[in-house]
């Protein structure tokens, strides 16, 4: 009896490779997805105009010529940075010496949102103690402006171009490396526009 005839046809190689291919695709997805830090979200506001907001000045910084401490109009005309900080924020203390250094060495104005202070003195006292590197500071106790900028934590730093359009967001403390590699080159580029 020629038994060979009862054998099934040889299985298609491709079918055997299918699970391997599926595994490969999943492995790539997981490798990307699981190593991505969901705390460092891409802002959806990049390349959109900074939101319309008005914040009162923090205590001791009131200027009789200005109605508000910080508002959307302050971001038009030149490339500026917007730094979100709070006296309660430890990472902001880490970042602060670098901001003080920038005040001495750089010509980029840094505006600030003093975010979620428990009382009116907390922010001003903190700046008195550690130094004040900011051009303009708005007080944002209930996250009005912070939410408008899509802030998720402090510190965060935005680059806003001459037209008042948000161009970049840095999450976490700024330092010399971030400044030299990313922020300052982008500021220079935006200044040419």
């Amino acid at each position: 009896m020629p038994l060979d005839q009862t054998r099934q046809p040889p299985p298609k190689r491709l079918l055997f490779l299918l699970p391997v291919a599926v595994f490969g695709v999943l492995a790539v997805y997981f490798a990307v997805g699981l190593t991505k830090d969901s705390r460092r979200l891409e802002s959806v506001l990049i390349n959109t105009p900074a939101a319309d907001f008005q914040l009162p000045a923090i205590k001791g910084r009131a200027n009789p010529d200005r109605e508000w401490g910080l508002e959307t109009a302050d971001f038009k005309g030149e490339v500026t940075l917007l730094n979100v900080f709070g006296s309660w924020c430890i990472a902001c203390q880490v970042e602060h010496p670098f901001l003080m250094q920038l005040k001495q060495t750089s010509d980029v104005p840094i505006h600030a949102i003093d975010w979620r202070e428990e009382d009116l003195d907390a922010g001003p006292n903190w700046l008195k103690h550690y130094g004040d590197p900011y051009a303009l500071v708005g007080d944002d106790p209930v996250s009005k402006a912070a939410i408008a900028f899509g802030v998720t934590g402090a510190p965060e730093t935005f680059i806003v171009d001459k037209q008042g359009v948000i161009r970049y967001r840095h999450i976490g403390p700024m330092n010399a490396e971030v400044w030299d590699d990313t922020i300052y080159p982008l500021v220079q580029e935006l200044r040419k526009q």
């Binding site: 979620r116 209930v142 939410i147 934590g153």
Partner: peptide
Amino acid sequence: CLVCQNQSIDDSNAQLAKDLRVL
């Protein structure tokens, strides 16, 4: 909640969640 990312702002005690609830 952007702070405690697996909670809704209704569940979260984070300050930002509170501000979002108020908003």
